[in-house]
Structure formats: structure tokens, C-alpha cells
Design a protein around this nucleic acid. Structure first.
Length: 214
DNA sequence: CCGCCGATCTTT
DNA sequence: AAGATCGGCGGG
């Protein structure tokens, strides 16, 4: 059996650490043990996509817990969150990294074309690579992980009591809650992300006028 | 291992 | 115009 909806109905800050050690399972045999997550809350979290209220993109986050919120970013990457909190709130937990436990060949096939064959450690290292490995994309947005209506489920993991580390979230702009210790991970796991202070700064855009202006 | 930088397109 | 990122490349 998978996780119950009640287990995901709490605040993102409470649910996030409980997802560590759980397995994300796809019906085709792929599975990965979650080792790094981040909590995102709604209206009081400037780092959340839901900060400024519901939009078509964030609609799933405002729905009932236990569903998957999948978003597209940087023009090429998918990232996945587990929606938590009561219906009407926008709590969610970003799945940042995992350790492959089954279906490794399929995960590697999903990376065909890479210049270098990815190591096992790299397959689910980072939120976009995790989605690539598990075959998650926009078609999975809204999938119910409790019912498994689209072949994706969340299974309970190791017994509670494993040590959990905590620190700042990754990749947020300064001022967007980048210093809040809302990231949780299992110490010693090789696919956990390093923390980049201030995130990556975008190069200043050259001109302020229109292209070909003048 | 680390830092730099381009890719690529949706959302606001 | 920026974004909850990644892969390639160069240097230590």
C-alpha cells in the first residue's frame, strides 16, 4: 500500500521530512528512494509559485493533498512536487533527489544521447534529472499518488528515526526565502545537492531598449 | 572538485 | 525578464 492521504494533509514543513526514505514508484518497474526534499508553502512563502495566489499553472497545488504538481522551467526541465496541506492551501514538497532502487536500465535509457553515460549517482541527482529518470513530465501533472491513477505511487520508506539534516533551499533568488531552512535531506547520500549562496546570478541583460532599437 | 556560461520557453 | 536547472568545458 502507498502512503495515505491523511499522511500528506499536514503543513509542508511537517510533511517534507517524512517523505525522506519513501520510494517513488512507477508501474513500469522504476523506483527511487527519496533522499532530498524542499518545503514550499503558499501565501507566506515568497519562494513558492503559489505566493501570488492561484493561476492555471499552480491550480493543482491548491487542490487536495497527495497529488503531483509538475512544472516546466528554464525552457527544458520538468520538476515534481507532492501536494500536501488541506485542500485550498498551496503547501507542496519539491522532490530534489533520490537513489535509484529499481528499473535502473530504464532510467539510463531515458538519458540516451548523453555525451557521457550517467552514473547511478547522477540519474536522480537534482529535481529535473529525477523527473527525467522516472519519466515524469507535464502529462503527470495532477496525478494522484495515493490512488496511483497514472501509474505513479509513493510508498512508505524506512522506519522513522533515521537522522535528517536541514538547511537552506537551493536555487532561490535573494529575498525569495533563500535563507529559510526549509530543505531536508538524508546525510551521507551522494545525490544530495550542494548549496549555492544566492543561487546563480543571471548576467545583466545588455540594453534597456527594444532589440534593433534605433 | 569547482566555477563559468549557454540552452530554451513558459509564465507574469 | 526571470526562472524551485543542467551539461559542457576549463582549471586546480
Amino acid at each position: 500500500m502507498g502512503l495515505t492521504r491523511a499522511a500528506l494533509a499536514g503543513d509542508a514543513l511537517d510533511v517534507a521530512p517524512t517523505l525522506l526514505g519513501c520510494r517513488l514508484v512507477r508501474a513500469d518497474g522504476r523506483a527511487a528512494r527519496i533522499v532530498e526534499v524542499e518545503a514550499y508553502r503558499g501565501g507566506d512563502d515568497p519562494g513558492s509559485h503559489a505566493y501570488r495566489g492561484p493561476t492555471p499553472r499552480t491550480a493543482v497545488m491548491f487542490g487536495p493533498p497527495g497529488h503531483l504538481y509538475v512544472y516546466f522551467t528554464y525552457g527544458m526541465h520538468w520538476c515534481a512536487n507532492v501536494v500536501c496541506g488541506a485542500e485550498g492551501t498551496a503547501s507542496a514538497v519539491l522532490l530534489r533527489a533520490a537513489a535509484p532502487t529499481a528499473g535502473v536500465d530504464a532510467m539510463r535509457a531515458a538519458r540516451a544521447g548523453a555525451a557521457r553515460p550517467p552514473t547511478d549517482r547522477d540519474l536522480c541527482r537534482g529535481p529535473a534529472r529525477l523527473c527525467r529518470a522516472m519519466g515524469i513530465d507535464g502529462a503527470d501533472n495532477g496525478a494522484d499518488l495515493v490512488r496511483g491513477d497514472r501509474g505513479l505511487t509513493l510508498e512508505p520508506g524506512d522506519p522513522a528515526g533515521a537522522p535528517v539534516a536541514r538547511g537552506p533551499r537551493v536555487g532561490l533568488a535573494p529575498g525569495a526565502g533563500d535563507t529559510l531552512p526549509w530543505r531536508f535531506w538524508l546525510p551521507g547520500e551522494p545525490s544530495v545537492s550542494p548549496w549555492r549562496p544566492g543561487g546563480r546570478r543571471r548576467r545583466p541583460t545588455g540594453g534597456v531598449g527594444p532589440p534593433n532599437g534605433g
